[in-house]
């Protein structure tokens, strides 16, 4: 069975959930091989987690340069492994880094870039959802190795036993004339809430929230549900909530199991970032708000009445 390479996303020895989704998708295509790029000792820390999601092999591409340069070490590692393993496909997460890695790797390998897949099929084709979920597309590589970026949260991660046999990959030295040096990092301080694009529930607030202070009504509901907090462009532009939480055409695209929209009218650009959510619940004072056209359950009313009541009901049920 051909190998399928998965680029592992990890932070401080913790593997991101999206990587487990990639390993699950990879197993439908062949034998899942995890490629770990990091400073020496990283692969040892993440190996057990990768094994529990069915990684048959773990390629350890470790060097001090691995985190010292942008994107290039990941491309180098995947290209090196791909040359020896001739994989059926390479899977990465459809994040900013992941998409850039996939594009550059395709140039190196003479492969095909398949962007932002929401499904990976056994025949190697992928499903995509474009124009903010308005069109469904199925595409595949006509020639070359398929290099696929998979949208976080789109594939459900399933555990499986993997041998996680470790193999060392020698990373080439990085040429500073060809790569940007990383001189510092400020990771997102997400607190205890899940990451927006990885969360299975997202609670978002819009212009209707009215101020930055009042956004805590959104946060409280989110925390009762164990959800991530999002915001519409109108809310971000009004300074109610930081831009990194913006959902929509110019922000993040999310497709959680449940999306709760509080005081969001549902402009086409917002819908583009959330309309592939499995279930949508909307609360808005305006009965004519377009968000109700796509909501599975809508409450016409004041979010400052409805959301706290819902928060209490959720808390009661969780006991």
């Amino acid at each position: 069975m051909a190998e399928v390479l998965v680029l592992v996303d990890h932070v401080d020895g913790e593997v991101k959930k999206s990587t487990f989704e990639l390993l699950t998708a990879a197993r439908a295509l062949g034998e899942a091989s995890a490629v770990v790029v990091g400073t020496p000792g990283t692969a040892g820390k993440v190996k057990d987690a990768l094994a529990s999601y069915g990684a048959a092999k773990v390629y350890a591409a470790e060097s001090d340069d691995a985190t010292g340069y942008l994107v290039t070490p990941k491309v180098d590692a995947l290209a090196t492994v791909a040359e020896q393993a001739s994989p059926a496909a390479v899977l990465v997460s459809a994040t900013a880094d992941g998409k850039e890695v996939s594009g550059r790797l395709a140039i190196r390998l003479g492969g095909a870039v398949l962007v932002d897949a929401v499904g990976v099929n056994a025949d190697g084709s992928v499903d995509q959802s474009i124009f903010g979920g308005a069109f469904s597309v199925k595409s595949k590589a006509a020639k070359g190795t398929p290099v696929v970026s998979v949208r976080p949260g789109a594939v459900e991660a399933e555990q499986a036993d993997g041998a996680a046999a470790e193999e060392t990959v020698a990373l080439p030295a990085v040429d500073p004339a060809k790569s940007a040096k990383v001189t510092g990092v400020e990771p997102v301080v997400g607190g205890d809430r899940p990451e927006l694009t990885e969360a299975s529930i997202v609670v978002s607030g819009g212009r209707g929230v009215g101020s930055a202070e009042k956004f805590d009504v959104v946060e409280k509901l989110a925390d009762s549900l164990g959800a991530a907090v999002g915001a519409s462009r109108a809310a971000v532009d009004s300074g109610y909530y930081p831009a990194q939480f913006q959902v929509g055409q110019t922000g993040k695209t999310v497709s959680p199991q449940l999306y709760v929209a509080l005081g969001i009218s549902g402009a086409i650009q917002h819908r583009a970032g959330m309309q592939t959510s499995k279930t949508i619940v909307a609360v808005n004072k305006d009965a004519e708000a377009p968000i109700f056209e796509i909501a599975d359950f809508g409450v016409v009313g004041d979010l400052f009445d409805v959301a706290p009541q819902l928060t209490d009901e959720v808390a009661k049920r969780k006991g």
Binding site: V281, V283, A287, F292, E293, I294, A295, D296, F297, G298, V299, V300, G301, D302, D305, V306, A307, P308, Q309, L310, T311, D312, E313, V314, R317
Partner: peptide
């Protein structure tokens, strides 16, 4: 569009 209710003081409960 799915179900839609007006909030008569129990909108949050109905959503739950």
């Amino acid at each position: 569009a799915g179900e839609r209710v007006d909030d008569d003081g129990d909108g949050g409960t109905k959503a739950a």
